[in-house]
């Protein structure tokens, strides 16, 4: 790998991290859409994870997600949130990767992001149940499920239209 490709890679990763952080900040400004599920968000930053996986490749996508989680928790000053966001984001990205590499084209992008949103929320609930040492937290899963269905479909459609309207000179 020569110097030029390394620089290109670094710039691309930092661009995606910057976009993800802006999405994260914008999302905290809008009121919660899924009022019935406590703490559920639209997950706009996951649009960036999915697009990074498609446009940058697997290793770079993992880098983007790890850096995004670290910086987001430093910016908000809420380091406890890292305990929730990092494992669940990584689990969601792993799901996306497996589905995208092995079964993509049989299933659509929307379905990939739907399943990864489910995994995201499930891991988050598992962490919460470990933290309060009570498995009854998992009773909330059907509620979170409905929220993650909405969020997953939204994220999938946004990623689809993003990739669709991207000029091919960007990735070729």
């Amino acid at each position: 790998m020569n110097n030029q490709t390394v620089t290109k890679k670094t710039v691309r990763i930092s661009l995606f991290v910057a976009i993800a952080l802006i999405m994260f900040l914008l999302e905290s400004l809008i009121p919660p859409i899924f009022a019935f599920a406590p703490g559920a968000k639209l997950g706009l930053a996951n649009v960036v994870s999915l697009c990074a996986l498609i446009l940058l490749g697997i290793i770079d996508a993992f880098l983007v997600v790890i850096i995004r989680c670290l910086l987001a928790s430093f910016f908000t000053g809420n380091v406890v949130a890292l305990m929730y966001s990092l494992p669940s984001s990584l689990a969601a990205l792993t799901t996306m990767t497996i589905l995208y590499v092995f079964v993509f084209d049989k299933i659509s992008l929307m379905c990939i992001s739907f399943v990864s949103a489910l995994v995201f929320n499930f891991v988050q609930l598992c962490i919460a149940s470990v933290v309060v040492a009570n498995a009854h937290v998992l009773f909330m899963f059907p509620l979170m499920f409905l929220a993650s269905a909405g969020a997953g479909i939204f994220v999938g459609l946004v990623s689809y239209y993003f990739v669709r309207h991207l000029p091919s000179s960007v990735y070729r």
Binding site: I107, S108, C111, F114
Partner: peptide, 27 residues
């Protein structure tokens, strides 16, 4: 990255019928 797959997204449809059935069923 895989240019072939990106092209598949670009020229494919956003929703496939089987996915829709899967999602509606789980909901």
């Amino acid at each position: 990255m895989n240019v072939k797959k990106i092209d598949k997204i670009k020229y494919g449809r956003p929703i496939k019928i089987l996915d829709l059935a899967f999602i509606v069923g789980l909901v």
